[in-house]
C-alpha cells in the first residue's frame, strides 16, 4: 500500500511538471507567432488556469468511479496533444490560415491541454485510499513541487538549451511513461487494448525524440519558406 501511495505522489509530481512546461512552451511559441507578446502570454496563462478549473469540475461524477482508466486516457491524449503541440502550430502556420483561424486553433489547444490537466488532481485523489487522512493536501504539495521544478527546468534547460520542439517531445514522452506506470499502480483490472495503445504511443514518442533535431530543422525551414 505504502509503495502504491509513494508511486502516486511521484505521478502527481511528474504530471504537474509536464503541465506547467506545456503551458510555458505554448505561451512562448504563441508569442513567437502572434504579435503583442505581453497580452498573448497573459491570455495563455489565464486560459490555461480557467480550463484547469473546468477540468476539475468535469472530473466530478462518473469519472471518479474508474480513476485509473480515465487517468490513462487523459495521459494518452496529453502525450499526443502536448507532445506534438508545437508541431501542430507549425503546420497550422504553414497552411497560411487566416489570423483568426490560427488563433482559434492555438487557443483551443491551450484549453484542451488545460482541461485534461485539470482532470488529473481529482482523479489522483480518487485513486488514493479513501481512509488516508489529508490526502488532498499532500497531493497538492507534490503538485506544487512539480510545478516548481517545471518552471526552473523550462527557464534553464528546456528553452535555452534543448529548444521548444525537442522539449515538447520530451515532456510528451514523460506523459506516455506515466501512463505505463499507472498500469502497474492500478493492477490488472484494465483492458489489454489500452495497454497496447499506450505502449505504441510511447514507442512513437521515443522515435520522435531521437529525431528531434531533424524535426526541428524541418519545421524551421517550413516556417521561413
Amino acid at each position: 500500500m505504502k509503495r502504491i501511495l509513494s508511486r502516486i505522489y511521484l505521478i502527481t509530481f511528474v504530471l504537474s511538471f509536464c503541465s506547467i512546461v506545456y503551458e510555458l512552451i505554448l505561451a512562448q511559441t504563441l508569442s513567437a507567432f502572434l504579435a503583442d507578446t505581453v497580452l498573448r502570454y497573459s491570455v495563455t496563462v489565464g486560459l490555461y488556469l480557467f480550463s484547469l478549473g473546468i477540468g476539475s469540475l468535469l472530473a466530478e461524477g462518473t469519472f471518479l468511479t474508474a480513476p485509473a482508466f480515465y487517468l490513462i486516457i487523459v495521459e494518452i491524449l496529453l502525450a499526443v496533444l502536448g507532445g506534438f503541440s508545437i508541431v501542430f502550430l507549425f503546420v497550422a502556420d504553414a497552411l497560411r490560415l487566416s489570423g483568426g483561424v490560427f488563433s482559434f486553433l492555438a487557443h483551443g489547444l491551450i484549453i484542451l491541454i488545460g482541461i485534461l490537466s485539470g482532470f488529473e488532481v481529482p482523479l489522483l485523489i480518487a485513486l488514493m485510499d479513501k481512509d488516508q487522512p489529508n490526502r488532498e493536501s499532500l497531493i497538492l504539495g507534490f503538485n506544487y513541487l512539480g510545478a516548481f521544478l517545471g518552471t526552473i527546468a523550462f527557464a534553464f534547460i528546456f528553452y535555452p538549451r534543448l529548444g521548444l520542439i525537442p522539449s515538447s517531445l520530451l515532456v510528451g514522452t514523460m506523459n506516455a511513461l506515466i501512463g505505463i506506470l499507472l498500469f502497474k499502480a492500478a493492477g490488472d483490472k484494465l483492458p489489454k487494448g489500452l495497454f497496447i495503445l499506450q505502449a505504441l504511443l510511447l514507442v512513437l514518442m521515443v522515435c520522435c525524440l531521437l529525431n528531434a533535431s531533424a524535426i526541428n530543422d524541418y519545421f524551421i525551414k517550413l516556417y521561413l519558406r
Binding site: G46, L47, L49, F50, L52, G53, S56, G118, P122
Partner: peptide
C-alpha cells in the same frame, strides 16, 4: 479546487 482555479484566472 475549481473556485481556486477560477480565482487564479
Amino acid at each position: 479546487l475549481a473556485f481556486d482555479y477560477f480565482g487564479s484566472l
